[in-house]
Design a protein around this nucleic acid. Structure first.
Lengths: 328, 328
DNA sequence: CTGAAAGCGCTTACAG
DNA sequence: CTGAAAGCGCTTACAG
């Protein structure tokens, strides 16, 4: 049997009330009693049951974190920071990999609700699911517009898209193609990058061409699209990919077809994760400040939990950085 | 206020007991009553409070997952699969990124204990912390030997080390260096790879040289070691790195110094994550079956939770695969 | 087939 | 400074 507060009380010769008080540092307790209780707790190797405490307090210090998958280095790194920052503040993270499946997301949200999380951080589509159930629940979205009342933390996607495209233009690329995630009304993140790409191309009288990769995390369909790009546009000489993995896949296939990077085709990626920078350091990319995103997100969420925002429309836009490598 | 079982009962015109029974599908309930209750639940958008249920049941369906960091693609992918498999089976994952800090690990373990997790999956050193507190707690270790009584799931590290080193030898490398994580009594995973490397070199009369990279996840100290390797052994012509990130860093620096890969130096990595295979597809590596590791680990843990193993020494060794790329 | 009572492990007014 | 009582939201014997 696990030891409980009564066991400690008995051993220390006090009431459970008193043990609870030393546990919570509440009210006056004589030094002697406090020490006795502490001794008893140590002796019995006692750990309070947070379930019982939370049930009473209506506060779990639990945060739900929903993203497509920790397998993707951008999310892997973001979630690392999110969890780490939460832990520092005494919050615990319930991890949900939804793989962009609406069905899974719904199940996860229900699970989080049942577990009485204090707040949720979402980085997936979430077609209004959360808003509907929103009941004293703090929610912050990362790079997604979930609803009018949910604060959002994102990077300057339009600026990122411009920086990437303008670099290609300035390097004399004539035939610039954009590889994007599947378009989706709920994720203007991608759309803003695309919009910027299109704006820049229009400004220099070029025709934008965008290919969309389904967000299914299936490497096959990704490869297929890349084959198609190179089949249909053998003269492509510039590519702006909306994440570093797409960029890497493109480079791979272009090289296989005998194209030299950057001489024949220049490539810019997006995200600039530590992992991608280590594995493919030569890649030119738009780097997102992952740590800042995490910090800002947790800050917002904790404010939300302590009731500091109330249906205020809020959007935080963090700056991105162009990292020039050797693929441009 | 959140709606609770009493609210549902009132609306459905029954007692809380009855609502609980339809919730748990327990005992006989008339069809009509069941339907009324369901209707009331829907109407009130009711979700049972899992805290209260768990408190009574002494079962949380919570699994603690402790690894160094989701930022590392191997752990990112492993944790993705672990979480996904857990979710399928109705378990929820509490994520802990311990960064190999013993202090953090201890805090996390205590946190998990307080939260009454049903089991823990550990992939970090854990100097006996868990075993000490082991109290009805199922624990499975991934690639770490924690104690005699904790089952372990790992890959055949010795075979991986042999395969990697033998490949280099068969490709006529004369001067083969091994880059390993920091040695540590509790992590024979790394040591087995190293042992295999040393055995193979001894077998062909060569002198093994191993460099250790501190497991601090600090890119600087990693770069430093790699500089040192190339400074101290300018004639190195073969490298076996115990993970793909080390391999990538080495390749980067070797190229910077004008060495051609694989002509001048051949490199074999380790892990073979999807991410590394996408970003650095030309890397020769020893691939670990991440999905199988996750599946086996969860299977073991669930058996442990249902009391199916009792201090039985158990080790599962999964096979690794050599993936020949273009760096050898 | 259904309900009243007791209890899961804790905490907080309320007394003293 | 300390304790007995009630209650957090649920579940399960036990009656009926």
């Amino acid at each position: 049997m696990k030891t409980k507060i009564g066991d400690v009380a008995k051993l220390a010769g006090v009431s459970p009330t008193t043990v609870s008080r030393v546990l919570n540092n509440r009210g006056y307790i004589s030094k002697e009693t406090r020490e006795n209780v502490h001794k008893a707790m140590r002796e019995l190797n006692y750990f309070p049951n947070d379930l019982a405490r939370s049930l009473f307090n209506k506060r779990t210090n639990l945060i739900g974190v929903i993203f497509p998958t920790t397998s993707n280095p951008f999310y892997g790194e973001l979630i690392f920071h999110l969890e780490n920052i939460c832990a520092e503040q005494g919050y615990k993270v319930l991890l949900c990999n939804s793989l962009n499946s609406i069905e899974k997301e719904e199940k996860y949200v229900e699970m989080l609700l049942r577990n009485q999380v204090d707040g949720i951080i979402v980085g997936t589509h979430n077609h209004g699911i959360i808003d509907y159930h929103k009941q004293n629940l703090a929610v912050v979205a990362v790079d997604r517009y979930l609803s009018e009342t949910i604060p959002i933390v994102s990077c300057d996607n339009y600026d990122g898209g411009r920086k990437a495209t303008e670099l290609l233009v300035s390097k004399q690329c004539e035939y610039i193609i954009h590889i994007n995630g599947q378009s989706d009304i709920e994720t203007p993140a991608q759309q803003l990058r695309r919009k910027a790409y299109e704006d820049v191309l229009h400004e220099c009288g070029k025709k934008p061409i965008t290919y969309e990769v389904p967000q299914t995390f299936d490497p096959k369909s990704q490869d297929e699209i890349i084959q198609r790009i190179l089949d249909e546009h053998p003269h492509v000489d510039g590519v702006f990919a909306s994440n570093d993995l797409f960029a890497a896949s493109f480079i791979r296939e272009a090289k296989r077809r005998g194209k030299k990077i950057p001489e024949d085709v220049k490539v810019v990626g997006y995200d600039g994760t530590e992992t991608a920078q280590t594995l493919l350091p030569e890649l030119t990319t738009i780097q997102q400040p992952i740590h800042s995103i995490a910090q800002t997100t947790v800050d917002m969420l904790l404010k939300g939990i302590s009731g500091e925002f109330h249906n205020i429309k809020s959007e935080t836009k963090l700056p991105v950085t162009l990292i020039e490598g050797e693929t441009t």
